[in-house]
Design a binder for these strands. Structure first.
Lengths: 331, 331
DNA sequence: TAAAAATACTCCATAGGTATTTTAT
DNA sequence: ATAAAATACCTATGGAGTATTTTTA
């Protein structure tokens, strides 16, 4: 352990981080609730302590130097750790309370949250959650920056290093207008049957699009020249006869509530996504999120029969989901 | 980004960390070069800021509370990151100079270091290295605590999360006294031939013992009732006719310098270890260590012919070693 | 009772404030 | 000319020191 006396303070790092964020000493000073000269002085001291200029000052703009870029990543990580330290103490006294800032992707939230949010409230009355909906990439960035505490998404997307609690496996199903040749059989649909079929898919940026596109490729389907921005739109288009699509089973009860669609399971290996609650490694909220994930899993399990009913077919016994795992996501 | 003004300072963390390490306020104050009351005051302030008692003070001893244990891990990580921040700036100005504290395991150091240390000195004159010899587990702990900058060891041992630069693959070879039935052929030795043979192995704690034991098990050999503390001892015992053993090819030129041993390659899949330079993820010295690793690899490559000559057999063309990889070690 | 941490207090280094100057567009 | 950062200078918080008291094994 080195730990010679440190030549800088957390406060200096905070000020520097604010300047880097806002590209202005003036506004940084405002955000930090100090006067501009005070903040300037601290930043200068930091630069002197480190022996490197972090910012290039112009009278109209502030630029971050190359050295600054290199240093500020570490600075942000340190400030995040400092937040975590404070938070971890709060968690000691009060393991399951406070407000969690949670992200969720749009292909999950409308279908899962109505189920599980009431359950959460019932099971953990001290815990409140703020849900933010966005695409995987944005959520992960917010997670890494500490703007979110956790996120509910599909593990099949590239996530980087996270801790996770798996909620459920969500199989994809084939959806077509009633009477469409692809939904005349009730047996699981094989890729061969779908060869050449015209698929409607989601717009870019949705991880579900990528997965559906993968399957579409193996089935030698072709993508139609329209991209929906939501599963609801997709379902409407299919109901209108514009083509067929894949939907996560989770979405079927909602999107087919008026029974305008015919649904068919897919033959194994059944394509699916794995829904999970993920969080930053070593987040002080890890234990709380783990517990929350378990609640979510149980709520999902309880919803299974209804999901099966909606697609008119029993699922194969779901592989026992494993918990308490920390691992690196794909890519 | 949260980053509300932090209620504690790096200095407070440093003092608390020193108290935890030394279990004494007085000695912690000495180490930190401040008076005992000053340090006490800061620790008390930290406890108040966090709202939790970190230490249980007795007149004869200081105990770390449960909360303290929970908090101090994070504290140490933060202090390490602070060190890294300072170091990363030093690296910016001067990428390949300074002193690296490097660990190496005893089954590598006597064979590889004499080769590569002169090469290192020649290639990176500004860079000096302090080498520490110890077993893998101890080295990894020192690495995680920031007491070492890098370590040269075998990737087959459980390492946790590290960045690495692979140096070379080092195959194991069969070593027996001349005239021993197992070394009459010059063809690669198969596990079947070795069935029931008496193997001399290293003492516990050496990762090479574990690997040799694995092979020994697949070959249905039996371990003799003696455990050597070094490969040198092992080689001496074999030369004295006490049994046979496996050695890393790297060790053969040194341990068989008087040609008292007969050496035979092993049939594929040839057991081997993968030597690599590893370091903490995000270490500011990463780029320097990466470069150093490349030097080590080239020095190893240059030594190949001599190693082959020493075991009297050409190796199969070595699989192209991959560089620039960061990955999680086994276990 | 003795060793160790906490308290009492003084001092000064420094973070922060206001007023002003410098700088670059 | 003007917006923004640096400088000058003052204030006051608080970190560090010495001397002393309290605590407990």
């Amino acid at each position: 352990m080195r730990s010679s006396p440190h030549p800088f303070t957390l406060r200096q790092l905070q000020y520097a981080s604010a300047v880097a964020d806002l590209r202005s000493f003036r506004r940084a000073a405002e955000r930090c609730h100090v006067s501009q000269p005070s903040l300037s002085a601290q930043v200068i001291q930091l630069e002197e302590a480190l022996g490197v200029r972090l910012f290039e000052r112009g009278s109209r703009r502030v630029l971050v130097t190359a050295a600054g870029e290199a240093v500020l990543g570490r600075v942000r990580r340190m400030l995040l750790e400092a937040d975590d330290l404070a938070e971890s103490v709060r968690q000691l006294g009060d393991p399951l309370s406070g407000t969690l800032r949670l992200g969720v992707i749009p292909t999950i939230s409308p279908y899962l949250l109505p189920e599980v949010v009431p359950e959460m409230r019932a099971r953990h009355p001290g815990l409140s959650a703020v849900w933010v909906e966005d695409k995987t990439e944005t959520l992960m960035e917010a997670l890494r920056d500490g703007r979110l505490d956790g996120a509910l998404l599909a593990l099949e997307a590239p996530l980087g290093e996270v801790e996770k609690e798996v909620i459920c496996e969500d199989p994809f199903v084939l959806v077509a207008p009633p009477g469409h040749p692809l939904v005349q059989s009730s047996a699981p649909a094989t890729p061969q049957e779908m060869r050449g079929a015209g698929f409607l898919l989601l717009d870019d940026g949705h991880c579900f699009r990528d997965q559906a596109l993968d399957y579409c490729a193996t089935a030698r389907g072709r993508e139609l020249d329209f991209r929906a921005t939501s599963l609801a739109t997709l379902a409407q288009m299919v109901a209108g006869g514009a083509g067929v699509t894949l939907l996560p089973r989770l979405a079927v009860p909602v999107e087919n509530r008026r029974s305008e669609l015919s649904v068919r399971r897919l033959a194994s290996p059944e394509p699916h996504r794995t829904l999970a609650l993920v969080w930053r490694p070593r987040s002080p909220l890890g234990p709380a999120l783990r517990l929350l994930g378990q609640t979510l899993r149980e709520a999902c399990l309880a919803a299974e029969p209804r999901l099966d009913a909606a697609i008119g077919g029993k699922s194969p016994p779901p592989g026992r989901v494993r918990g308490r795992t920390a691992a690196r996501g794909r890519s």
